[in-house]
Design a protein around this nucleic acid. Structure first.
Length: 494
RNA sequence: GCCCCCAUCGUCUAGUGGCCCAGGACGUGGCCCUCUCAAGGCCAAAACGGGGGUUCGAAACCCCCUGGGGGCACCA
């Protein structure tokens, strides 16, 4: 049931790599649930594996969330009453709970060396047994364990999983999941470096931070019963568990891989949030797209602004089956959101894109061309492709490209010069009068309007595809248009 | 190998036993509009993986198979 009581939810990534859309989607759902119920959205960094830490990863997590408008109420940077929010700063807390578990008899110290464990596993595989801890230290008398600890022997703390019976864990989307306890391994909870493993750290933090709903990836399903057992051993009440399906690669075959910039029809794509930003996608489009990958509202509504999502999101409508990433649909959403932008807004977002392409395009100019390109772009960077010529000093089409459709070079040159003369005497190069004038000219020359216009387009813009000819000429300016037409005629004469 | 999850058009999905010879969206094809490219409008093709049950009635419930995915670390 989607709660009406304030939900406290957390997004708890590990700073071990780049921030991809799978994680971001989980964060989105967390955020929506918190905002809808008037609860809190918490960012917690799970950095207990020192070896896998990637510098800058934490910053990328935050930058990605901010870009998409997923602001958190509590976190490493903003603080909060349940902090610290970085697990590496909470080691003492986990150690205390590990001790408690040992006292309770639900966990035990294990002194086995990594070498012994590796060998054990190897032998088990040879015997075609599932790899699992063989329980050597589980059978140690507490007094002996204590003595070895006092002697300073290196050890970990393992969970003492029940020998028989079954454990049932309830997932909101899948219902009860029951497993034989004999299949639950004696997992390590606290490593010999004193830092916890996920199985302990996440359970402790979720409880201490008052988390009401745990939304996480379905990769955790296999260890879900273990988690429930840990929580119960500590005597805590469980949160509502929601396991979100993973994303599949665009073909639907195989998991979306971490290093995947697949080449779809529109060009290179990326599964990383910040790459999407740099590729010219709008955050509102990415949010809408992501929200619909695993969640739906009804049988027809697809456009959702963040406010709509906050209002309409519900856990019940989450889909338990895996979804393939569909970048083409992202393009579609992006096109719609782009077209909905005002001239000023579009110009503002285009500024950095043109700058990055090395083109000097001031805000005022961008506002003026916005109406001409809005309907022609799906991503912001396509604007450079279609309208970059506006900001280049010279256009130099090849003589070959300047020959009109079904025309000779000479006829093309003549048409260009004839058009130049008419445009020279026009008062308004963007107006209907000139258009009529040139249509008449085309008829006089025995040309289709499209042939003449195509010729002019190539001469003025240097490209076969552009915004509508007359708006384009108006923006380029009469003198420049005339100069370019003369230059084109020259090129054709050679 | 063992454990767990999932299963409707190519893709995202609606569907909670009769409203479904299955609806929407993207994509695809065609037509219209049109100075190019888009945008827009109209139309079309396209799915309940297979087999058993349950039921007066199954896309929906149960079982098996198949397929897909995930997991089996002192990673998360």
């Amino acid at each position: 049931m989607t709660p009406t009581a304030p939900a406290r939810v957390r997004y708890a990534p590990s700073p071990t790599g780049r921030t991809h859309i799978g994680g971001v989607r989980t964060a989105l759902y967390d955020f929506l649930l918190a905002r809808q119920t008037g609860g809190q959205f918490i960012l917690r960094i799970e950095d207990t594996d020192v070896k896998r830490l990637v510098p800058g990863a934490e910053a990328e997590i935050m930058e990605s969330l901010r870009w998409l408008g997923l602001d958190w109420d509590e976190g490493p940077d903003v603080g909060g009453a349940a902090g610290p929010y970085r697990q590496s700063e909470r080691a003492a807390i986990y150690q205390e709970h590990a001790r408690r578990l040992v006292q309770l008899g639900a966990a035990y110290p294990c002194f086995c060396s990594p070498e012994r464990l590796a060998q054990m596993r190897q032998e088990q595989q040879k015997r075609k047994e599932p790899p699992h801890y063989d329980g050597l230290c589980r059978r140690l008398a507490p007094s002996e364990s204590q003595a070895r600890i006092d002697r300073g022997e290196k050890h970990v703390i393992r969970f003492r999983s029940p020998e028989d019976g079954t454990t049932t864990a309830v997932d909101l989307l899948r219902g009860p999941i029951t497993v034989e306890n004999s299949t639950i391994d004696d997992y390590v909870l606290l490593k010999s470096d004193g830092l916890p493993v996920y199985h302990l750290a996440a359970m402790v933090d979720d409880h201490l931070m008052g988390i009401t709903h745990v939304l996480r990836s379905s990769e955790w399903l296999p260890t879900f019963p273990l988690h429930v057992l840990v929580v119960r051993a500590l005597g805590w009440t469980e949160p509502t568990w929601v396991h979100l399906s993973v994303f599949l690669s665009p073909t639907g075959k195989g998991k979306m891989s971490k290093r995947q910039a697949v080449d779809t029809k529109g060009g290179a794509k990326s599964i990383y949030a910040l790459d999407l930003r740099d590729l010219g996608y709008l955050p509102e489009a990415v949010v809408n797209w992501l929200a619909l990958m695993g969640w739906s509202y009804d049988d027809r509504t697809e456009m959702f602004a963040m406010d709509d999502l906050i209002q309409k999101f519900s856990l019940e409508k989450l889909n338990a089956s895996p979804a393939a990433v569909n970048f083409t649909k992202l393009d579609h959403f992006n096109g719609i959101y782009t077209r909905a932008l005002s001239n000023e807004d579009l110009a503002a977002r285009l500024g950095p894109v043109f700058a990055q392409a090395g083109l000097k395009a001031d805000r005022e100019a961008l506002v003026r061309i916005a109406p001409s390109i809005r309907e022609r772009i799906r991503t912001l960077d396509e604007a450079v492709e279609i309208a970059g010529f506006f900001f280049r000093d010279k256009v130099e089409p090849s003589a070959e490209a300047l020959i009109g459709r079904n025309m000779t070079a000479e006829a093309s040159r003549a048409a260009l010069l004839a058009a130049e003369a008419r445009i020279a005497s026009a008062t308004d190069v963007g107006g209907k009068d000139l258009e009529q004038e040139l249509r008449s000219l085309a008829a006089e020359l025995g040309l289709e309007p499209g042939q003449l216009f195509g010729l002019l387009r190539m001469a003025v813009t240097g490209q076969p595809v552009s915004p509508p000819l007359f708006e384009t000429m108006e923006f380029v300016g009469k003198e420049t248009v005339l100069a370019r037409l003369r230059r084109a005629a020259e090129l054709l004469a050679q």
